[in-house]
Design a protein around this nucleic acid. Sequence first.
DNA 1: GCCGGAAGGC
DNA 2: GCCTTCCGGC
Length: 481
Amino acid sequence: MNANSILEDRKEQPENKKDEEREERARGATIQRLGAGCCGGMDCNCVSDLLLPPVPALWTPGFAFPDWAYKPESSPGSRQIQLWHFILELLQKEEYQGVIAWQGDYGEFVIKDPDEVARLWGIRKCKPHMNYDKLSRALRYYYNKRILHKTKGKRFTYKFNFSKVVLVNYPILDMANSPFFLAQNHFNGNSATPDCTPEAIQSLFPRLPDSGRGTSLFDRGTTAPGPEGDKLRLDTFPFLSSGAPCYSKPPSLLGPYPRNPPFDYPWGFNPYLPGAFSLNNCPKLPPGSLYPSQFYPNPLQSSLSQLPHPFSSLLPPGEAGSLSIGRTDIGNGLTLGERPEANPPGTVLSLGLGAVGLGAGTGPGRQSPTERRGGVKQDPESDSDLEITDLSDCSSDNENEHEFGTGKESSLANRAQILLDGKKGSALPPISSLPPPVSPHPLKSLIPISPPPPSLAPSLSPGMALHERHRETETLKLIHS
DNA sequence: GCCGGAAGGC
DNA sequence: GCCTTCCGGC
């Protein structure tokens, strides 16, 4: 920010002061007056420095954005809050329900007061001349990134593509093996989109080593480019190669996670926490949940969904279950079925063009449940092909996967094998070093948690399995050494 | 209202 | 990279 703009901002201060007072009133006494933030400088008098704490999860009940969304490193290319963060922030705050609110389909929201949203955004970004026209331009900027798309025919209505939101904020590689993605890539008829190229996927992980420098996400050195040639490196992802096979859940838009070493659990789920699988620790979805009722857990599948998985917290129960199964298949490739060679034991996980499915859409004939109900396909140009709501079809594509018991056990065995073969396996963090429990997080209510199904074998009971797996991993490592 | 290109700031 | 600003077009 140059001197002129600072001066300009200071000229705007009286107006900003009014904004401050207005927001203060709106926000009540819960504001944390933290100085860091907007405009990146101490000279900035932008009121949003004072108004908007960097850890919004602390300040209101209801839905909050997880901490990781505010970590600077979680905002690729930016050290300031991103607009979509801000939008979500507004959406989760009750006092802005009259300004912006979830409405309609899953992930869809309507800007009820465009000018006010623009004003708030302008305050946050120290852009006093912000207006809806400019804000909407910024929103349109997200179209290409497939974070947002416009709901056509509805004024001021946009829709989040949560799968991309999650992916952008945390690289979740098990998505590559998810039956969801596998079912939608070009291997089963759909053509890969440009977003599925290794380069595109690499671009989603800007904090990771860049392509072409030997430590890329993809190891293309030994094989030709193409579905079988682009190998995703497990060793780039500590949480996949650290010996925590079940913890590769991505951050969802969900609850808290301990930030301290041994390593983070950014997926908002800490398996070590007392009651992580407790029968009594079943948060209830609040009224007006982010997610419609079809996303509520059912007893069987939600017990799978509470296992770490990119989508376990985002999906309707059926999909969460099937995807959890996919997750546990990291490294063994069994989920791939027709491509058993895709994941040879070792530190390289085959991704395959399109496997991650960023752009691997639902393809012709696939519709979200809502669309099916309504009998109306959204505009073909929209990004609806990326919507998680389309996962239901995927679930049905993998109906045989309800026999998760065998698959999971074998996947665990294979996982252990990977740890050995890859010589990468660091032990699970010792129980004694586990982070302290955290207080319940508002967004925890979004995590479909329910007791493990009675039919689960003891070894598959999540709570048991984690400890047993820990021991098993340690044992295998000892044997190997 | 909505779109996307272009230029530019940070 | 992520906007912000401006703009012409639909």
